[in-house]
């Protein structure tokens, strides 16, 4: 994850409290989704950014996961994400995100 984005995640988590924060991802592949999710839960796996060694344990979802989709206005979801659902490998993204949450999510 971009270093500036990591800094922002860290700062906002300190400001609002980790239990009040949710991170939503839009990554194009399962692996990239997993890496971003790992960064905001267990810490930066690439050891490059401000979240290196920082385990925030934040709640994190990909926008294509049903937990998010089901809460969004269906018309808006269809307009904004509908086509990407056809393009992305949603099943493998869901599987990867679940696995990261099970391992590292604290909230």
């Amino acid at each position: 994850m971009d270093l500036e984005n990591q800094k922002r995640v860290k700062d906002f988590t300190e400001e609002f409290g980790p239990e009040n924060v949710i991170v939503i991802l839009g990554a194009s592949e399962a692996e990239a989704s997993g890496l971003a999710a790992e960064t905001v839960t267990n810490g930066d796996p690439t050891f490059a950014g401000p979240l290196t060694g920082v385990s925030l344990g934040l709640k994190v979802y990909h926008v294509c996961e049903p937990e998010i989709k089901d809460e969004v206005d269906p018309a808006v979801y269809d307009e904004q994400v509908g086509m990407m659902e056809m393009v992305l490998d949603v099943d493998s993204i869901i599987e990867e995100m679940k696995s990261i949450r099970e391992q590292y999510c604290k909230y």
Binding site: G26, A32, A36, V81
Partner: peptide
């Protein structure tokens, strides 16, 4: 909830 969005140019943008 306070939402932090990390979109992707080649996935779903922010």
């Amino acid at each position: 909830k306070k939402a932090i969005i990390i979109g992707d140019r080649d996935g779903v943008p922010g």
